[in-house]
Amino acid sequence: MSGRGRDEVTGLALYDQTAQDAAAAVIAAYSTSFGLASRMLGPRVRPHVRNVYALARVADEIVDGPASAAGLDTEAERRVLDDLEAETLAAIERGFSANLVVHAFARTARECGIGEDLVRPFFRSMRTDLTTAQHDSASHDEYVYGSAEVIGLMCLQAFVNAGRPAPRDPGPDLVEGARRLGAAFQDVNFLRDADHDGGALGRDYLGSATREQVLARIDADLAAAAAVIPRLPPDCRRAVTAAHDLFAALAVRLRRQPAATTRVRVPDPVKAALAARAWLGFSPWSARA
């Protein structure tokens, strides 16, 4: 089959663009907050970060309900997840996938230096959701590393390496900041979604940790991340600051609402104000400052 694409783009370039658009569509459908922050990224890195999050979202949906609603049992969900991991690793190696979201991710991985060392822990954490309902401190930390910290590290690879002729090491301070920010995001979401995770999915990610202990950990992780955000490339700082500040605001609201009666949200006008603040170049915000 042949034909001319939009704006006369054809062949692999058209396929790459279509895959990138597919990843953007996934993000637009699933996350308005992420969509807001990603629009603040410079064009050099924006599609790569969307590609990372789109793959993560597809994998998450396999274990968080849609696959089950389609009639898959736990073993079938595991096989689908295993197949997605295998296809992702193969696509990074060969540079092509018939799965558009995987193709977009593989393109980012090859350009930005995202390898098996980050991909496998992510899928390992996704598989944990099929087998582990009650976490302790150790399994929480392992799960958070694979489900959130490595996503931060993948994004960091894009921040540092998108558009470069060859990937380079971001450096230990940025690596630590990316991990801490990812961990804070995940712990905030654990607190926000505790009722749903426990009631609908039968999972307890926080184990014996008290709400105050988790909030203190979030504050420390956000502070550690804020310290290194100014060292990111200029076309990434505003978006990361906006995301950081949104989760700092969520943490404030979680502290004000000790009982998880409703899912805590940041009102749209406050989101807009935080985004504007970040866009103007202010340092990451902290309610503890």
Rank of each mutant, 00 (worst) to 15 (best):
Q20T: 10
S208L: 14
A148W: 00
L215W: 01
A19Y: 02
F105W: 00
A166N: 10
L206N: 01
H103F: 02
P121A: 11
N189L: 05
S125F: 06
D60T: 02
L41Y: 01
T210K: 10
G163K: 09
A243T: 08
R217K: 15
A287E: 11
Y143M: 03
T108R: 04
G35S: 13
D173R: 13
A59S: 03
D173G: 10
R265V: 15
A138F: 09
R94E: 12
A98R: 14
A29S: 13
C112Q: 02
N99D: 13
V63Q: 03
A106K: 01
D7W: 13
A249G: 09
D173F: 12
V58E: 08
D197C: 07
V58A: 06
A200Q: 14
S2R: 15
Q134V: 15
R127A: 09
G182H: 02
V252A: 09
V266Y: 08
A109L: 01
R168F: 13
Y30K: 15
A220F: 08
F159N: 04
R180T: 09
M154V: 03
S31Q: 06
L156F: 01
Q134E: 15
T108G: 08
V45K: 08
A25F: 03
R277I: 00
T241Q: 03
P234Q: 14
Y53N: 01
S139T: 14
V264E: 01
W279S: 14
P230D: 06
R211P: 07
F282Y: 15
E93K: 12
R94H: 11
E116A: 12
A242I: 04
Q17R: 14
T262P: 13
R211T: 08
Q186W: 02
S125L: 07
D169N: 07
L153V: 04
D141S: 10
E142R: 14
A69V: 11
R120N: 07
L246F: 11
L36R: 13
A276E: 15
S125K: 02
E149I: 05
T88G: 09
L153H: 05
G42A: 07
A90V: 09
R168Y: 13
S147N: 03
G281M: 04
D83Y: 06
L215A: 05
A242L: 06
L130N: 03
P284K: 03
M154K: 04
D141L: 12
K271H: 06
E111F: 04
A224F: 05
T262H: 14
V9P: 00
G35N: 10
V144N: 01
R50S: 12
R203D: 06
A70G: 10
A23M: 00
L100M: 10
L55Y: 00
H103A: 01
R78P: 02
R237W: 02
Y53V: 00
A278M: 04
S286T: 13
A226H: 04
E111L: 02
S139G: 07
Y145V: 11
A200M: 14
P172H: 11
A275N: 04
L14C: 11
T131S: 07
A276V: 10
A220D: 11
D204H: 07
S286P: 06
A260Q: 12
E8N: 15
A239G: 06
A216I: 06
D21P: 09
R256K: 12
Y53H: 02
P47G: 06
P233C: 05
A287N: 11
P230V: 10
